[in-house]
Write a protein that binds this DNA or RNA. Sequence first.
DNA 1: TTCTTATTTAACTAAACGGGTAAATAAGTG
DNA 2: CACTTATTTACCCGTTTAGTTAAATAAGAA
Lengths: 118, 118
Amino acid sequence: MVERTRNDSDLDPDPDLDAIFGALAHPTRRALIEQLAGGPESVGELAEPHEMSLAAVSKHLQVLEDAHLIEVEKDGRVRRCHLDAAPLSDAFGWLTRYRVFWEDRFDALADYLETESQ
Amino acid sequence: MVERTRNDSDLDPDPDLDAIFGALAHPTRRALIEQLAGGPESVGELAEPHEMSLAAVSKHLQVLEDAHLIEVEKDGRVRRCHLDAAPLSDAFGWLTRYRVFWEDRFDALADYLETESQ
DNA sequence: TTCTTATTTAACTAAACGGGTAAATAAGTG
DNA sequence: CACTTATTTACCCGTTTAGTTAAATAAGAA
């Protein structure tokens, strides 16, 4: 073990990634993101399909908001949530650095992207 | 809340993603992956730069192994770890589905990929 | 104002996480 | 065998996570 004054978390080169990957690590939160990909929804609407209390979903949404993956705006007594997927590009970028280790699939994806963007 | 017999985790469409994203959510584990991107290393070598016990690093490596992000093979009394970044493509694939929400940056990445693959 | 609806917050619990140290294992070396 | 090295495992501990129910807020409706 190296001797230093600070610990690993103090020198975390990208604490955002902790929050982003952490947020994506839970199936309910990924499901919520998928729901929001279809357009903005209120907390109640988002909660409806899930087999847990609204309060629990509310907390998951807070985690997503802390990771800046969603934004919540007040609309009367309703909180309307919408996706802000921009931080996903941070995660995407990090993963991209390891593309060399799965070059084949990466090439396939690159081909796909080229085709798509035509 | 929807009424069902099972709960959300039972119908997790991709439990692998829980493990993969969860593994990536910790700075030490991302650092370990970066180290292994430079080539295989033993547990001791991997642990050296980190300001924590070897036992703690060993546990982080176990998390990475559970997510199939690394493979560990015995080489005498040394355990040699190497990256198996293939599962990252699962994560990459999931993120790709939300590209439409950060299209600008995505286009930039796609351009970059096209250039790189020339 | 009172009632209802939408959502968060508080308080609690069980389990998981991330770390530590010390003991156990495994495998070379003398 | 005894000793050393490499690594894991066991156990402990404090914090966080993910869920619960119930109370608190906020705001529209009567």
